[in-house]
């Protein structure tokens, strides 16, 4: 079901409430890592969920940022999802649109159908400037077998232009790795143990090594993102970037983790959203 997620600067908890079919509201419940009611609400008799929390890298001093998360439409599972997305798009209840594409399923029919829906909507509005396309799972490309992020982004751009989008902004991202790195950084800051098993930590460590080994190659794909301003000198962000974080059986400096985090593209997305909000 659709989720409305509101960024409230400085809010320490993340809280949620569900709106029932008959209009009843559940009341705010604090979400925790151990116990989340969201999956119950998603399968129950509710029409929407509201969430409030602080997106730490988005500043609301001009306007408050709100994400309207639509259920992923997929013909084979639930036709209603497509109708809901269509309804949200046609009701004009948004100022900006973030479209997530999947590197591993590029060009599939479900994606094409949804892109067509968005392209038709923008054709009516005539405004192509307030949309960003994320190419998620860009780290699924095998760089050692000459699969190139920049080439893939170029291919996605051409595809989008063919679909009717004028000069699309495309950001290659690694959502999963970004989340894991941010959880590691938060654990380091709070001086608590990493909330991952040793097997998962070893996998994360391996992925960090991989993205750092190819940081220039990934950086090339991010270079043309407007207002991303990618640089690999994160030392100004933290006082002691030489500090070590142990992930699995590897020691990384804080600087290496922040470098890897920049390569995930999520900071570029945040800057892009922030710039759009400020304009």
């Amino acid at each position: 079901i659709p989720m409305k997620i509101t960024d409230i600067d400085g809010l320490e908890e993340i809280r949620a409430q569900a709106i029932h079919l008959d209009g009843r509201v559940s009341g705010w419940v604090s979400l925790s890592d151990e116990d989340s009611c969201l999956s119950d609400w998603n399968t129950g008799t509710y029409t929407s969920i509201e969430i409030q929390g602080d997106f730490p890298n988005i500043d609301n001093h001009v306007k408050r940022m709100v994400f309207l998360d639509t259920p992923g439409p997929n013909n084979s599972t639930n036709m209603l999802h497509g109708e809901l997305t269509h309804k949200i798009l046609s009701e004009n209840g948004f100022t900006f649109l973030m479209f997530v594409l999947n590197t591993t399923q590029f060009g599939v029919e479900d994606e094409r159908r949804l892109l067509r829906m968005v392209a038709d909507k923008l054709k009516i509005d005539g405004d192509h400037s307030s949309i960003v396309f994320l190419v998620n799972k860009i780290d699924a490309l095998d760089l050692e077998r000459d699969e190139c992020p920049k080439t893939h982004v170029g291919r996605v751009k051409s595809y989008l232009v063919e679909m009717g989008f004028k000069t699309p902004i495309v950001i290659p991202v690694m959502g999963k790795l970004s989340l894991e790195l941010r959880v590691c950084l938060a654990a380091h800051k709070a001086q608590i143990a990493l909330p991952f098993s040793s097997r998962v930590q070893c996998r994360i460590a391996h992925e960090i090594d991989y993205v750092l080994a190819f940081k220039e190659t990934y950086g090339m794909a991010l270079k043309y993102v407007p207002s991303a301003g990618i640089d690999f000198s994160p030392s100004s962000l933290h006082q002691n970037t030489a500090a070590n974080i142990r992930i699995g059986d590897r020691d990384f400096t804080l600087e290496e983790i922040i470098e890897a985090e920049i390569i995930t593209g999520i900071p570029a997305l945040e800057r892009c959203l922030q710039a759009s909000l400020a304009s």
Binding site: I5, L38, T85, L89, D110, V183
Partner: peptide, 28 residues
């Protein structure tokens, strides 16, 4: 005043993970 961002994606695109990454926690 709200700046509303509609998030649109086909299934399995990882959009919830991206929102979680921006929140810094796997809560959604």
């Amino acid at each position: 005043d709200e700046f509303v961002v509609a998030v649109v994606a086909p299934m399995s695109s990882g959009k919830t993970t991206i929102l979680n990454a921006m929140l810094g926690k796997a809560l959604l």
